[in-house]
Amino acid sequence: MSEFRPILRPVLGTKQTVSSATLKLSPLPEGTIIHVLARPGEEDIVPFLGSLAKAAQHAVRPVSPGHWFIVGEEPMPHQEVKSLFAALEPRATGVDQSHGRVRIRIEGKMASRALSKGTGLDLDPSAFPVGQSAVTLIGHIAAHITRVGSEAFEIIVLRGFAETLWDDLARMSLEFC
């Protein structure tokens, strides 16, 4: 066992919240992100994931065919993670990404305008309604975007890219602040 304990610090902990009347950019607490990978052929797994997630106040976000993120505000205790992984088997496999990915919230009237500068995704409410998720590029960084409210988006990005993406988003938001 190492003498040194890793120091865990929120990667966006030192960033200033970008805020104005029309746009607000804020880091979300580094809670829980579980990547769920379904076995091939498991078609109707969404209600099953929903039932597992509801119990613990988590949200299920589609990523791509057969992939989902289960996200939560609070860190999930190790024992709970283990029992969730056990409940997923054999239909799906869970991977704990809580320390590997970071969530950022961007909200306000100008949020979609600011995001549109970086992504080719159609963010119009008719094409991208509340609850919809998509993986896309923001600038050169791959990120997962979910519309969590009519004027609010949640971005999930790899931790190593989080600071760069934050700085990019802050610059994209400058004209609205």
Binding site: S64, P65, D122, A134, V135, T136, L137
Partner: peptide, 10 residues
């Protein structure tokens, strides 16, 4: 077919 129309850069 999974994501809809996306720019080729992706």
């Amino acid at each position: 077919p999974n994501c809809g129309r996306r720019p080729k850069e992706e």
